[in-house]
Design a protein around this nucleic acid. Sequence first.
RNA 1: GGCGCGGUGGCCGAGUGGUUAGGCAGCGGUCUGCAAAACCGUUUACACGGGUUCAACUCCCGUCCGUGCCUCCA
Length: 496
Amino acid sequence: MQEHNLHVYNTLTRTKEKFEPFSPPFVGMYVCGPTVYGDPHLGHARPYITFDVVSRYLRHLGYKVRYVRNITDVGHLVNDADEGEDKIGKKAKADQLEPMEIVQMYTNSFHDAMRALGNIPPSIEPSAAGHIPEQIKMVQEILDAGLAYESNGSVYFDVEKYAKTNDYGKLSGKVLEDLISSQEREGVRNLDGQSEKRSSLDFAIWKKANPEHIMRWESPWSDGFPGWHLECSVMSRKYLNFPFDIHGGGMDLQFPHHECEIAQGKAATGIDPVKYWMHNNMITLDGKKMGKSYGNGINLDQFFTGDHPLLKQAYSPMTVRFYILMAHYRSTLDFSNEALQSAQKAMQRLFNAISSLNDVKPSGSSTFNVQEWVNECYAVLDDDFNTAQLLALLFESVKVINQLKDGQTKLTEADLDLFKEKVNLFVFDILGLKDEEAQSGNQEEVDGLIKMLLKLRQDAKLSKDYATSDAIRDEIQALGFKILDGKDGSSWERQS
RNA sequence: GGCGCGGUGGCCGAGUGGUUAGGCAGCGGUCUGCAAAACCGUUUACACGGGUUCAACUCCCGUCCGUGCCUCCA
């Protein structure tokens, strides 16, 4: 395993801590996955790209990462439905489809979007519906520990009792008294099951299903379904064991979801389940938060096709990925056409420089300190995965590459090899970017053909037949290629 | 109302108690038959009001604004 100085920001302590997993070289990482009842949207892009880079970097450092990300396909109530219907069940009835058909459909489209964004699939992607027995078992464990109670067929976690001996709120910074008074101020909530609870803070770990509820399972307490926080506790425990190293998710999940995960896990096992809690920040759109009520929710597919009133053009999946990586994961990030267009251009410039790196010839001496640059790249990644700074350093490398081409900067063969290796490592392996344009399989044939045309154009220029040379250039450009005239002849690249 | 996070130049976005972020856009130059590209140089900053300090964009307090949570939405 590589020596490193990786520090990660731990929400639990609100500080950056040196990363030291429980049993190196193994690292367990759990990230809250999607609820598959709708198309993947922009809000899905950020957490999964963030933790994709985290897993890529950890693996690069030599860790054996087991990355677990769940598929939520069960048991969550519809926000605006007073009957407490299962979200997936409701959609199924509306569309006249089997619930599991819906689940499969949106799981597939989620996977498609993730693949397009360049995310490596997790090691294990367990589904909540596939872990009902384990969830029933954990409910029983919490009951046995005396930290939950049954009420009318449902089982609720007893928050106030748990809080007597545990710090409920340590992750989110909530104070129990504040929560109570805040809820009193809000008045009595009319949500289903409120009267069954001893305290409004208590949350369901097993919920009795209404008669019309489609997705339901037998349990010792009722025909019903597991509570909304339970699956993550159960599946992270099953595949990573408590305590495990990293738990990730969006900042919006801090409370109550992750706070409840800690409470449940501790109640059931006596073990504080997670060492490092990592939270990515939210995305805004033209400075406003996204949401259905704002009419600015955009599906990922709409980004990729440009088919949305707020989008002036299509943005490729890599442009979205690049743009997200231009900001630090703990900052809010604002999406706008202007910002995405600038990201698209910047990314193309980066790729163009990298592809031209292969043509650079080594020199007898070096005028650029490659090793120092490499060290800086590692230093910024070690500082809580600062991809924004890494990209700044990579644009420094773009400048260096261009100077190498012009002969203004020189590198020895050893330095050049190191430089090439590390530029490729950071851009493609760690940031997970892909040069989509260069993916076509007949790259070499195209290169040969265009170079032949450039030769003809050069001949025309030498005989001052500019009409012909310009015609060749215009035709090539019309096909989507740019002609770059340099001191040592012409080269070409694809137009962004 | 409570808890948390943030307000950086035309736009996006890093970072720091005293020294260049970076990208996109703009401007000037080199190169070029012209153009593009590339390269060089360069203009616009740290919400507002106090305070601490030799020194604050960076620390503290207040105000305003944005945002997340306080809802069985994961």
